[in-house]
Amino acid sequence: MAGPILQARGLSKTYRISEKQPGLAGTLRHLVRRRHRDVVAVDRISFAIEPGEIVGFLGPNGAGKTTTLKMLTGLIHPSGGALQVAGYEPWRRQAAFLRQITLVMGNRQQLIWDLPALDSLRVNAAVYGIAEPEARRRIGELAEMLELGAELQRPLRKLSLGQRMKAELLAALLHRPSVLFLDEPTLGLDVNAQARVRDFLADYNRRTGATVLLTSHYMGDITALCPRVLLIHQGQLFHDGSLADLTQRLAPCRQVRLELADLHPAEAFAGFGVIEAHQGHQVRLLVPRAQLTERVAVLLERFAVVDLEVSDPPIEELIGGLFRQRGQP
């Protein structure tokens, strides 16, 4: 199939929220006269995703990230715009569409708590109409990729969080969906388990060519997996492109760290940029990108430089800064 597998044009969602004052009096007043307020959760966002892409969704809580994800999976009816996923309109939730997608939410489980994962997997195989032998083959294959073995035969409650997440992934992928929606798939996992889930997702994408959309609070997930990110902020698409581009946009300056042979007063560096730190032989400067090469050359010429490092501020800080600056909680 040619063309994007997922296309959103002017996608919007407005909630109508009824307001109620706290307390008994507020409740009574609310009963008599309801007051409504329209809240725009997602405001005319447009993007297209090609088959096989891995795309990261960024944005603080309440930015419209989850709402968008729910619209893409068909759990929420958009209030405006056009949306096509795998050739379907998601909100109709036709069986053929649902067989093409999957949703994994890091904080919600679909497997049965008291039973081994294998039992839940059999249920899923039946529901998705996968024949028994085929289901067994796929379970074996995925279990190998996920490094799951005997764990599948133990009641779910006896597994560790990481093992449980892997079992959830197995259950979500049993029907070979072509589009994966992952909402915080590494939530609460330790660093090792996070890395394993990441590796698996990358591997799965390589092997099956499935499209992956994921949200995560861990920048590590995004930097490791997603060549392309969509940053949603206050319901609008703030950025669509690579993480590097985003950094460039958010951080017009780069950080230059110098170690000098001799001591110089702070005034000596005033013309080069904002002095972030100045202590003994160590100096940290923020230099506008456009003048970077030119100023570094002058610095090298004028001072006896022992060591020089040019870097971007950490992406978490940049995004965090963006949100704070726009008055987000």
């Binding site: 729910k70 999976t73 068909g74 759990l75 939730r93 069986a95 053929a96 649902l98 067989r99 997608i101 999957t102 949703l103 939410m105 904080n107 919600r108 489980q109 679909q110 529901v127 998705y128 109409g129």
Partner: peptide
Amino acid sequence: QTGTLDYVLLKPIDSQFW
């Protein structure tokens, strides 16, 4: 309450039946 209704609604089977 727990939001797992989302999973039920995304199964290719009638949700009332499920």
